[in-house]
């Protein structure tokens, strides 16, 4: 039985239940986005392919668990998350979670990409076709007004270039996303992601090389493939926007008060997540009880 359990853990194939859920998600996405067209080249066929490739990683490799599904309603959101790991795999897993964990009402979360990536051959185009866009205020506004949800990592590159002692320490959030939320009256969904920091243990931040390559950060790690660190995603209660604050007249100090509250909410869930996190790999039968995934 233990051997069967171990084999199941390393088997990359999805269970029948997962496959069935995947089919349902794809059918729902096809229905939802049948008439959707965006000026970045959104491509539903590509999203289906990516989902098919990424789901085994999501379910079997990173063994993602999602908590707080009940906090998500059928409305556009700005998903505001902590940034972890040297490569933004956290954003990628969050995007899959928002589709896969909601088979009846999946959504494609539009991530924000850095300027250097938007102009990169192949990658820029791949990102745009899969729904990720340049993190520009007008772009975000356009999507939110169309009823789409976006994800932001307001720590920016500081979030993914942290050294080991700073893992899970939130870096100061930038203000931009809150102004967009005020302008478009979109609720903010605080997201805490645990597990992604350990995928690429930090060795060295090659700042001079990053500067020479024209990229914002280049944290180096000893491994090229992410380690199979189990990931937990906590979805907090939507942050209600103040009614008395205007996006045009609000001062940075007024906005910071609210951002501080969002940071606090994300930190609280990070602390909960760190206490109940699973051990690496989770292959040993003795750990089986700890790997009880919400979805079996």
């Amino acid at each position: 039985m233990d051997l069967k359990y171990i084999l199941d853990q390393i088997d990359p194939r999805l269970s029948d239940k997962d496959l069935k859920q995947k089919q349902k998600v794809i059918a729902s996405l096809r229905k939802k986005y049948a008439d959707y067209k965006d000026p970045w080249g959104f491509d539903l066929d590509l999203i289906e392919q990516l989902l098919t490739i990424a789901l085994p990683l999501y379910r079997k490799y990173f063994k993602v668990r999602v908590f707080g599904l009940e906090n998500v309603k059928d409305t556009p959101y700005i998903l505001c998350s902590n940034h972890t790991g040297q490569i933004p795999i956290d954003g990628f897993l969050l995007t899959i979670a928002m589709a896969y964990e909601f088979p009846n009402n999946p959504r494609v979360i539009h991530g924000m990409v850095e300027r250097f990536l938007a102009g990169f051959p192949f990658l820029g185009s791949l990102a745009a076709r899969s729904g990720s866009i340049l993190g520009d205020r007008e772009n975000c506004k356009w999507l939110l007004e169309k009823g789409e949800s976006i994800s932001v990592f307001p720590e920016g590159v500081r979030g993914i270039s942290k050294s080991t002692p700073d893992y899970y320490k939130l870096q100061t959030f930038s203000n931009g996303f809150f102004r967009i939320a005020l302008q478009t009256k979109t609720p903010i969904l605080p997201i805490s992601i645990i597990g992604a920091e350990e995928m690429f243990p930090f060795v060295y931040h090659a700042k001079p090389l990053a500067k020479a390559l024209g990229i914002p950060a280049l944290p180096l790690s000893a491994n090229l493939i992410p380690l199979p660190s189990p990931v937990d995603i906590y979805i907090g209660k939507p942050y209600q926007l103040p009614k008395d604050l205007s996006f045009e007249t609000a001062t940075n100090e007024e906005i910071r008060k609210h951002i501080y509250k969002i940071e606090k909410q994300i930190k609280a869930n990070i602390n909960i997540g760190l206490k109940s996190r699973r051990k690496w790999m989770g292959l040993l039968p003795s750990m089986k009880t700890k790997i009880e995934n919400k979805h079996g």
Partner: peptide, 8 residues
């Protein structure tokens, strides 16, 4: 034509 052109 720029990669960081805002839409519209």
């Amino acid at each position: 034509a720029y990669s960081d052109n805002s839409i519209f």
